[in-house]
Design a protein around this nucleic acid. Sequence first.
DNA 1: AGCGGAGCCTA
DNA 2: GTAGGCTCCGCTG
Length: 917
Amino acid sequence: MAKLILIDGSSYLYRAFHALPPLSNARGEPTGALFGVVNMLRATLKAKPEYLAFVSDAPGPTFRDTLYAQYKAHRPPMPDDLRAQVEPMLAIVGALGFPILRVPGVEADDVIGTLAVQAQALGIEVLVSTSDKDMAQLVSPHVTLVNTMSNTMMDRDGVMAKFGVRPEQIVDFLTLTGDTVDNVPGVSKCGPKTAAKWLAEYGTLDGVIANADKVGGKIGECLREALPLLPLSRQLVTIKTDVPLEFGPTDLAQRDPDTAQLRELYARYEFKAALKDLDAAEQATGIVEQPTGEAGAVEPAVLSGPVAVIDAALSAPGDYELVTTLTQFDAWLERLRDAELIAFDTETTSIDAMRADIVGISFAVQAGKACYIPLGHDYPGAPKQLDRHHVLAALKPVFEDPTRPKLGQHAKYDINILSNYGIAVQGLKHDSMLESYVWNATATRHDMDSLAKKYLGYETIKYEQVAGKGAKQISFSQVDLDTACRYAAEDADITLRLHHALWPKLDSVPALRKVYEEIEIPLVPVLAAMEQRGVLIDGDVLRRQSQQLGKRMLELQQQAHAVATHEFNLDSPKQLQTVLFDELGLQAKLKTPTGQPSTNEEALEAIADTHELPRLILDYRSLAKLRSTYTDKLSSIVNPRTGRVHTSYHQGSVATGRVSSSDPNLQNIPVRTEEGRRIRQAFIAPPGWQVLAADYSQIELRIMAHLSGDEGLLRAFHAGGDVHRATAAEVFGVPPEEVTTNQRRAAKAINFGLMYGMSAFGLARQLSVDRGEASDYMGRYFSRYPGVRAFMEATREQAHRNGYVETIFGRRLYLENLTSRNQGLRQGAERAAVNAPMQGSAADIIKRAMIAVAAWLKDRDDAHMLMQVHDELVFEVRADAVDEVRAAVVERMSGAAELAVPLVVDVGVGANWDEAH
DNA sequence: AGCGGAGCCTA
DNA sequence: GTAGGCTCCGCTG
């Protein structure tokens, strides 16, 4: 059964303030009450409730003040030492991921009462965490009070034991006893015992009132005296359970905690146990949450309250309309024409845009107001839907009008879908996935469900909930219309709400806004076009290669079995381990991270001279990899409709700003070995066309020269020629023409290693020299290129100071684990920090180049951009246009950034991708 | 059927 | 030693 924990914030703050000694931190700030509350919150989280909230009083009068001017009139003002702890408390509560609820006009109790009743109706178990006895009136079979500070729980029996009355009698009980602290008038001389006695006798307050005459003695007079005020008192002590709220119990999921901010707050207020918990969690997961706000010095006051308060406009349930009539559709068409920003989403039959059919479209034009237009639900008994052709034809002018701004979540997919129906979407202005990605690429995944949870505290309907999962999953076209509407309209609605939550963040940092507006958003249609175009594959070439590879693999396999004297699965590292190290008794040189003797390439290479089996395995593996991943796979993935391979480019999955490619991954096609390179021969151009490949020469090293400003490195690049040779000449103190092959190899290893944040130890390993020698090389390198060392130091320092490093264009690259107590994790983070500005800037540059080249290609039909492989762009070009395209591509790639060194681009042209290199 | 580990391809 | 994606096995449901 799902559980909801409601925390009575004010009650805890007061109770902790009075119960704990007046602690303070090194700055002299009071921390006692905070400490108590933080411990209570941490204990609460350990219960892992599905839903939770921290409820506190909103500023301003409530309905009780209106009802009775004397209400709480004698309450002393909040002590300064307590007041000072309110803002930090809210900051910590927010950073822990609690939804904070503050509703004006009512007290926290009323919000808690209302949510408790609502949750109960939904079959949710409720725990009310409070130290306020008045709350006992809420207790029921599924509502229990918890007092974390005294570590007690109070259910129905507990209420009876403590008060001597049933929970439903608590209101009457409190009315009779009154409350001197809150200035609620009761019956004087009537304490808990008398109240319980009367209620036991007459059942209810009304019963007591009706029988007021029968009560004798002095106390009877007091009762009769109090009679006129009792109805008012009852109103005052009754906790409301019908407050109109913009959110419900199920909106109250915990958000992702902001560990970085927590660490800072805990450190500031010196909560050592809480800090230790954070460290333990970090060690366990190896993950540290990145701050989502401006990193650097964080003043708790700035980040408190509103950051985590559920914003009614962004978190309320939406109003979704299922559009099945022309009247409805025309009304929405009108809304779209008037909209400042159109949020749209498509529903289809497949996640592969190239094979998907459209099933429906949803729109949102304001938060909470969305529609779903079903177009292709075809289950038995499906209601009649609008004509797809008519709807798309009517929407086409809207989608294709660049002056009507549009918003999507991963809009590239929807653009591809609509393109299948002849609609060329123009005017994509925003994409919530990219907003989140540019804001902080690593704080969260950027799918809508994760974003809604993190930035809105909203739990979306999951696709699995409407369509099932695994083998039983049905197509969206089989989902009933009402369910489909809830799901699909929510997608458009949440996209819009996410935009409202994320855009102000981006807009507040000019460099990030520029990266988003000038790089990521314009890149969307460019990538979409590349995916749709696809690349032509020669299936016959691949099939022939598969056969040849298979034949040679079989031979190797038979030889291996003969050597091992029995059959075994060459693809199984585990079986191989047994054969090599147990049966044949070979000496294992390396271990896997899990402690098993390793059978990876390096380990087999190391024992290849002691037995013939390792070499057979190595040969077999390289062939198996080629066949399973490339020759078999690629020919099977050719789209039958287009005869081409259509990859997907991912704009939101690489921490440094690169794009990645999958289904298939065209960014890891072999190139280093002769056999591998043959696979590239299958990437061809149509008859009369050529493949043109253009790649940046040493782009990351050039960026290092630019960023570091190191004179030696700048000179080397300005001189042109072989930079590794130039480096070797400097490091080894010989003229460039006398540099030996080994010297150049060492220099190249240093150049690359430095960009990966390498240590002398790593270089020694790479070059197979001892550590002293490697460290000697690095010493000489840094003495020749002192600017490089300074740059690396500065980068590490910036990473520690800000939690992120930046690219040339100001993209922020957050680092995880920089403050880890685990040395390995921390050093890993520092290496990543050193590499990130170079890898990230290179990514920015090629993205800018792609946008520029695509703009130039826009109205041409003699060349298409097909692939991006990090520092390389691949095109198909009609033979008569090759020279012109080559010049234009080089010009735009070289001109994609103004660096302190030239950006050199090498171009090759050929009948296939291999020849074009 | 889904998942983690091992291994290996790219820049 | 940076950044990814894909395939296989072998385990768990």
